[in-house]
């Protein structure tokens, strides 16, 4: 592609008329169809990035695609033509190595050109392997040192509220980050400050760098822990768009008045949507042979089309 790093410099605070707003006024079936389509596109973008680089955090990206589809296609308010528009909701990616999934969601949202995904992790790309705010339009924070995202989210939510702004802050982090004490500092802080404008989502894919999460450091029961900290808690199948949509709607519409921060604990499957990857040994950094990428893409498309034809409710089979 030959793209060079073009650090974002937009300071335009005006609404250019291209704002994407939350879709809650639309018919539920319309919303779910759009989410399912977005999830397919995000997954395909993840595979394209993995193929271009020959490796990457593909399994995690596929697993998180439905969450990102709900957030970017349905829940978030933002202006794709001006990622720094002051009125936007904030989406913070704490889990820096999930960047390829976020880039794919940015492409789906129109924040970065779709073809730019092919520069993923390449020299000079705006899309480094670990997400950084200084490289990529739409990337609000530099994640990667895990356990930071929710602490930053507390500041975003507190700061926005202090300025009288009703924008919401969404924070994405993974189950591995539940090991970090800072996550729980932030959990306590968000409840203390009654940050009803904060929505956290935890990708419970059960996989950490050294192996299955349960073997590394036990973190259950999650619902009780968050509830005891004072959060509004939802636990869902993170690869079920219906359940995800209901949970996020409940966070944004339902409990906001209580002033409790919200968490959606999402049980996801590494490699979801691509049986070849979903059914093999789960590894933090998955290697895929060159000849397998087209197979993965074919499986993804087949599953999406079959689900659409069957009229199932958007859930990845």
């Amino acid at each position: 592609m030959g793209l060079t790093v073009d650090r974002r410099d937009s300071l335009d605070m005006t609404d250019t008329g291209t704002v994407h707003r939350r879709q809650h006024d639309l018919d539920r079936d319309v919303r779910l169809k759009a989410i399912r389509e977005a999830a397919y596109n995000i997954r395909m973008g993840v595979l394209e990035q993995g193929q271009a680089q020959g490796e990457g955090y593909v399994g995690q990206g596929l697993g998180a695609a439905d969450i990102l589809a709900v957030v970017f296609r349905d829940q978030l308010t933002y202006d794709p033509s001006d990622p720094e528009w002051e009125g936007r909701d904030r989406f913070l990616l704490s889990t820096g190595h999930y960047a390829l999934a976020a880039y794919s969601a940015f492409a789906e949202a129109g924040i970065v050109p779709r073809e730019e995904l092919l520069t993923y992790a390449a020299d000079g790309s705006r899309l480094p392997m670990s997400g950084m705010s200084t490289y990529t339009p739409g990337m609000e924070i530099s994640g990667g040192s895990l356990g930071h995202g929710l602490t930053l989210g507390v500041g975003h939510a507190l700061g926005l509220r202090a300025q009288g702004k009703d924008a919401k802050t969404f924070v994405f982090f993974s189950d591995g980050e539940l090991d970090e004490g800072s996550t729980w500092e932030a959990a306590m802080s968000a409840a203390h400050w009654q940050l009803g404008n904060l929505v956290a989502m935890v990708d419970m894919n059960g996989l950490q760098a050294d192996g299955p999460t349960g073997d590394i450091l036990s973190n259950e029961p999650q619902e009780e822990r968050w509830a005891s900290f004072g959060w509004d808690v939802h636990r869902v199948d993170g690869n079920d768009p219906v359940a995800l949509l209901d949970a996020f709607d409940a966070c944004v519409d339902g409990a906001q008045a209580t002033g409790r921060p919200h968490v959606v604990i999402c049980d996801t499957r590494v490699g979801a949507g691509v049986p070849l990857l979903e059914n093999r040994e789960k590894l933090h950094f998955m290697r895929v042979e060159a000849e397998d990428w087209p197979v993965c893409m074919g499986q993804l498309t087949h599953g999406y089309e079959a689900a659409a034809a069957a009229g199932t409710d958007g859930k990845v089979a």
């Binding site: 002051e86 904030r90 507190l158 926005l160 500092e185 306590m188 802080s189």
Partner: peptide
Amino acid sequence: PERFFQMGMAEQVMMGAAAGMAQVGL
């Protein structure tokens, strides 16, 4: 008082929150 934030004995979230506040214009 409305512009002071007592973050508790929790330096990591204080630093993260300060950074987040700077990002939203404070």
